[in-house]
């Protein structure tokens, strides 16, 4: 037992600790906020100067299909289109695979499925994107060249590489959601005489659908922002592709390819910042959609 005389002292000590802890975390948070605001501000001012200072028209930028900086033509539509196309395709390829992998781990063979697949998925998530690009270029592209029309490089190759990269994102979110599903919902379904498959597509999938969609959106966000691996296999032609096996570009690949060839402050450089701004805005949209899905899930 502590004597009563110690109590005020102890209290003061606790108060000081509390105060220091509070102060320290507040400073960290303020620091983070300042960094985030500076980045957003920097990208936005740079991105806007293309239109405000260099007088490129916004509609030409968003809807023009000719990208030719030397002729002062800054139509970024091919890249915007390329980014959306590849990440959508990647999500379309990866989602069913991921959901099946997650179901396998949680529902089909919960005893060993997770032990086997979980490390594989984590490994996939940890492989650097340049390795994916390298593998894509060395194995996927020659295969595509031999199997399909075209040069092998192109939208399809980009989408396939991306789909493998976002597989872990969607799979792990789907696995968590399935694992968190209340057991008694499955029991209710089995208790009515539903088979395992009827239970999976009648109860389990519909119940976790919002979470799966969250995974898909986050996967798409990752695909949308990925630069290196895509750039290595997509071909980087600055035009709107008419077939999946045709070379194309994405916003990210154009930025990485051109950023070292332009002078800071030039219109060419500012146009790249405008694309960066679009990427940033899209990230906001993805985050917003995820929030929306989460909110709906709570109801």
């Amino acid at each position: 037992m502590k004597s009563n005389q110690d109590t005020p002292l102890l209290l003061r000590k606790h108060r000081t600790e509390e105060w220091i802890g509070r102060g320290y975390t507040t400073i960290c948070v303020l620091f983070l906020i300042v960094i985030i605001i500076s980045i957003v501000y920097f990208v936005a001012t740079k991105g806007i100067s293309t239109f405000a200072i260099n007088n490129v028209s916004l509609s030409d930028f968003l809807f023009g299909s000719t990208w030719s900086p030397d002729d002062n033509k800054f139509g970024a539509l091919p890249f915007i289109y390329g980014s959306f196309l590849t990440s959508l395709l990647a999500a379309v390829i990866a989602s069913p695979l991921s959901v099946c992998a997650a179901l396998f781990m949680t529902e089909i063979v919960p005893s060993w499925g997770k032990k086997l697949l979980q490390p594989v998925i984590e490994l996939l998530a940890g492989i650097p994107s340049v390795v994916y690009g390298f593998i894509g270029l060395s194995i996927l592209v020659p295969f595509m060249r031999d199997t399909f029309p075209g040069q092998g490089i192109g939208v399809a190759a980009g989408a396939i590489v991306l789909s493998i990269m976002i597989l872990p994102t969607i799979t792990s979110i789907a696995t968590d959601a399935l694992g968190a599903l209340p057991r008694n919902l499955k029991e209710a379904s089995y208790g009515l005489g539903a088979t395992r498959w009827q239970t999976i597509y009648g109860v389990i999938i519909p119940t976790v659908l919002p979470s799966i969609l969250t995974g898909v959106v986050l996967g798409m966000a990752r695909a949308f922002g990925e630069a290196l691996a895509v750039q290595m296999v997509i071909g980087n032609a600055p035009h709107i592709p008419t077939s999946l096996f045709e070379s194309a570009s994405t916003l990210t690949s154009v930025i990485t390819l051109n950023m070292s060839n332009t002078v800071m402050g030039s219109v060419q450089n500012n146009a790249l910042w405008s694309m960066a701004m679009i990427l940033m805005l899209m990230t906001f949209v993805f985050v917003f959609v995820v929030r929306l899905l989460e909110r709906r899930h709570k109801l």
């Binding site: 008694n184 919902l185 029991e187 209710a188 009515l192 519909p206």
Partner: peptide
């Protein structure tokens, strides 16, 4: 599946599906 159709069960905690009232019964 036929057996469980003939012998129904209700649990301690209500466990409705995350569906409409109608869909719960029609399931």
């Amino acid at each position: 599946t036929v057996l469980r159709q003939k012998i129904g069960m209700v649990w301690q905690r209500p466990n409705p599906f995350y569906k409409s009232i109608y869909e719960n019964i029609a399931f």
